[in-house]
Design a protein around this nucleic acid. Sequence first.
DNA 1: TAATATGTGTAGTATATAGTACACATGTCA
DNA 2: TGACATGTGTACTATATACTACACATATTA
Lengths: 116, 116
Amino acid sequence: MSFGKYIRKQREALKSKDRRFSVRQVAQRIGVEPAYLSKIERGDVAPPSEAKIRALADELGEDADVLLAMAGKVSSDLQAIIRKRPQLFADLIRQLKSVPDHALLRIARDVRDGDW
Amino acid sequence: MSFGKYIRKQREALKSKDRRFSVRQVAQRIGVEPAYLSKIERGDVAPPSEAKIRALADELGEDADVLLAMAGKVSSDLQAIIRKRPQLFADLIRQLKSVPDHALLRIARDVRDGDW
DNA sequence: TAATATGTGTAGTATATAGTACACATGTCA
DNA sequence: TGACATGTGTACTATATACTACACATATTA
């Protein structure tokens, strides 16, 4: 699903329980014009900046990294981590491309536990 | 060192052995105007697009991921890998932020060998 | 039913990105 | 010493990014 459609779906779901989730009110809370949020949700314009996507994720209780991915972006903090050691991270991430989810979770767990 | 200064240094080094590495000739081979490459090397303009950086890396025998990092960019193929599984990769990369080089190399090796 | 809220159409703006085109002074070498 | 090559200054350009501002018709609510 597209970024816009997904946002609309999630916002409408929240709106059905709480009328503070109208386009206008959400737009105001995340700091954009209502017409702009409306256009984003309908795919009339490209997804907004990383900062606005983060505000939206916060507002809608969504995962920022997932919304950024839907918007075709990668979080700037992740990019900064990669840029500090480009060869190591580039090699590793390309290696991990075809590694199944459960194995990635296991690596993350092992690293967290210091088992490396 | 900045992207521009680094490129200039590497190109000049090659030029001292082979006069085909002049600004003009390298510019022609990577498909940009000489004045533009000159400005890039002096930091007069921002680094070029990913495609031109890759051509430059190829031409100068440099690692594209390293040059992209110096230019403040992350390879689009890596971004695509992350965007396909944003939560898993975001968590993992943030975990790996403070992991030392030798441990990253070991993880890469273990993954390559199927030890996971 | 009057006031208020809602979603959206149209038009426009500022800044960044990614360059080109041409001219010109200086340097090289045949 | 004349032709060609070299690096660079100046002036543009096209497209993308990231929005704002205002107006208007339609709902909703008091």
